[in-house]
Design a binder for these strands. Structure first.
Lengths: 204, 204
DNA sequence: AGTGTTACAGAACAAGTGTACCAACAGGTG
DNA sequence: CACCTGTTGGTACACTTGTTCTGTAACACT
């Protein structure tokens, strides 16, 4: 990635923060004031450079249409890290995790997990699971983790079929496998992602 | 939350998708074409309603400044769900998980986890951990999960002090605790979040 | 039928806004 | 010093765009 001058870097940082906060690009005259300039020309020049170097893009002639390149959004994935044992990490890879882009679809929803029956599936109390509504219950694959509504309530379990019965298996040997007639199980959604925010005050 | 007419809902959904994809609001005439209208008046009317009902807001007179209310961004957290046992879920709570907003700060970065030494901390192979650079190594609390650089490489472990030594504990009894002189351990960052995307083709 | 309400089409206006142009200035290079 | 290059200040212009206004059509209700 081509490097930036200090003036270009300063504008770029301010621009990214502004777009993240306001969900739209500022106008050139707004940037002018933010950079303590009294003419739009310098901003235009810097934007041109940022565009040529591949940092931003915009629709020509249209107002407030600047956007940061998609491959620069989110947080950078600096490399892989071994939880198993020390080895190489911090590569100079440019891959990025766009938390707002790819994984989430419109209609997805989240549930806060309570209880510990899914610990062996690496889901613990307090995690937030992102679920996707299931259109066709027949299409659910064996072992998929789903939010299922049965007569007594809704629960998060692995989904299995057994003849015309449906098994809901917890991922914790301390809890029992539950079995219901297929028609009495209403699958509300399937697991698409897990999010765990770490409370900085929390200590193991 | 006040409900919407079908026309308002249709515009709102299109608007949210457009902003998410383009990082800026469309113009009224763009919405006009998208809704198959030939006059800007109906769009303006619907926007006015969306504003009064608290769904969107914009800077009056400024071009392309519509933004979705912050408390509506991200995915809705519909309630809590028991992994432990069936109980109530799907409350009508309005809380939301804003994946792009609150948790991530500028400067944060991500690492893909390989290996299984942190399985008891509910971090498994393939997870993405979001790390925050550590300014003051003295301020790290006991038990915090950190990415630490030692002479042999970088690893993800729980951080403990033992006199003037630093212990790096894996969360898996199969792996040994490692101990280093405090000055030879360079803490690259501390864990602030875990993200796990579920591959739909993956079956347990 | 009459009436009020709402939505739409079309046009027009004013402000916001991107862009082009030119002069002044600073910094480096011969 | 002269010269070139890049940045800034300043201005001007044309297009974009939010906003307002008027008239018409569709619809619900009395």
């Amino acid at each position: 990635m081509e490097s930036l001058t200090t003036a270009q870097q300063e504008l770029y940082d301010w621009l990214v923060d502004y777009i993240r906060a306001n969900q739209h690009s500022p106008s050139i005259r707004q940037m002018m004031r933010a950079m303590n300039l009294r003419s739009p020309a310098p901003i235009q020049s810097r934007l041109e450079h940022l565009k040529n170097k591949g940092y931003i893009e915009w629709s020509e002639g249209k107002a407030r249409t600047i956007r940061v390149r998609d491959d620069l959004r989110g947080v950078p994935i600096l490399g892989t890290i071994a939880a198993g044992f020390v080895n190489e990490a911090f590569t100079d890879s440019v891959e990025r995790l766009d938390l707002n882009g790819l994984p989430i679809q419109n209609g997805d929803y989240a549930l806060k997990v309570t209880g510990d029956s899914m610990v062996e599936a690496m889901i613990q109390d307090g995690d937030v699971v992102i679920m996707r509504p299931v259109k066709d219950p027949q299409g659910i694959r064996e072992g998929t983790i789903v939010a299922a509504r049965v007569e007594s309530g809704t629960t998060l379990k692995s989904f299995y079929r057994q003849g015309d019965q449906v098994q809901l298996k917890p991922a914790n040997p301390d809890y029992p496998v539950m079995e219901f007639p297929a028609e009495s199980v209403d699958v509300q959604g399937r697991l698409v992602a897990v999010w765990r925010g770490i409370d900085p005050d929390f200590v193991v």
